[in-house]
């Protein structure tokens, strides 16, 4: 007899729905096997931890930003400069993600940020559990700004919510202007796009408008901020954008 509906299916298999009263379908599958409906979101564990991080950060008025790009776009240089410029007006901390070494964490600590390095080993992205552990270690003061520098990778980090307030995607003019189209998931989820190394524009063949158009095909209305982290161009706009994020969310 079928455990779910009580029908007499003879020797046929039993179909058992578990959780959420899912529909009980007939006919049954082959003998001696039964179906268990799970409807379980694969990333729910990460998403739950991310929600916990987000609540923890909100309680403390901490602004956390997930900074992502391919390797070599200038994430660390941008953050070095940002830390140096912003730390006089408030606490700034960095969670630094790399497969190996503490080289970047040293650079950011030298710039004035309290920093925790997360080495992912064979891992290609940070996840919410890593950030949770790093936040506990970092213990940022209330009202701090925390930059999470993700592992340099335009593919995998796009999938993992860390609990950040916003996603900052960085690319540089030494990369192709069509990069957003090649890595659509990353750009689709961006809250702001920083176009770095604009001091090199006279020396490279890079179409800024084409890049903006490509990014906006994926993320309509996406704001693009051209900057040079080494020379300082456009950083005022970046700091203004950070100020906007730090304001409490209305309602």
């Amino acid at each position: 007899m079928c455990e779910t509906c009580g029908c007499d299916a003879g020797d046929a298999a039993r179909l058992t729905a578990v959780g959420g009263g899912a529909a009980h379908a007939h006919p049954h599958p082959h003998p001696h096997e039964r179906v268990i409906v799970l409807d379980h979101r694969v990333l729910s564990h990460n998403d739950d931890l991310a929600a916990r991080n987000r609540a923890w950060l909100a309680e403390r008025g901490i602004l956390a930003l997930n900074v992502m790009s391919s390797p070599g776009s200038g994430k660390t240089t941008l953050l070095e400069r940002t830390v140096a410029d912003l730390s006089p007006s408030g606490p700034v901390a960095v969670i630094e993600g790399d497969q190996e070494t503490v080289l970047d964490a040293r650079r950011l600590a030298a710039a004035g940020a309290s920093t925790v390095q997360v080495n992912t080993g064979s891992g290609c992205h940070l996840d919410a559990a890593m950030v949770s552990g790093a936040l506990a270690e970092l213990a940022p003061p209330d009202g701090a700004t925390v930059f999470v520098e993700n592992v340099g990778n335009l593919v995998c980090p796009a999938l993992f919510d860390l609990g950040e307030r916003a996603r900052v995607v960085l690319m540089s003019v030494t990369e192709g202007a069509d990069k957003p189209l090649k890595y659509p998931h990353m750009f689709r989820g961006a809250d702001v796009l920083l176009l770095n190394k604009i001091d090199l524009l006279p020396y490279v063949d890079f179409d800024v408008d084409a890049c903006r158009d490509a990014a906006r095909r994926l993320c309509p209305g996406l704001r693009m901020l051209p900057v040079s982290a080494t020379r300082g161009d456009g950083l005022g706009d970046w700091y203004d954008w950070l100020d906007e994020q730090a304001r409490p969310v209305a309602g």
Partner: peptide, 17 residues
């Protein structure tokens, strides 16, 4: 504007009785 298509779900399993 593209929405949806981002499902990542374990729908069900079959187990040996």
């Amino acid at each position: 504007t593209v929405t949806g298509g981002a499902e990542l779900t374990i729908k069900a399993v079959e187990v040996a009785d």
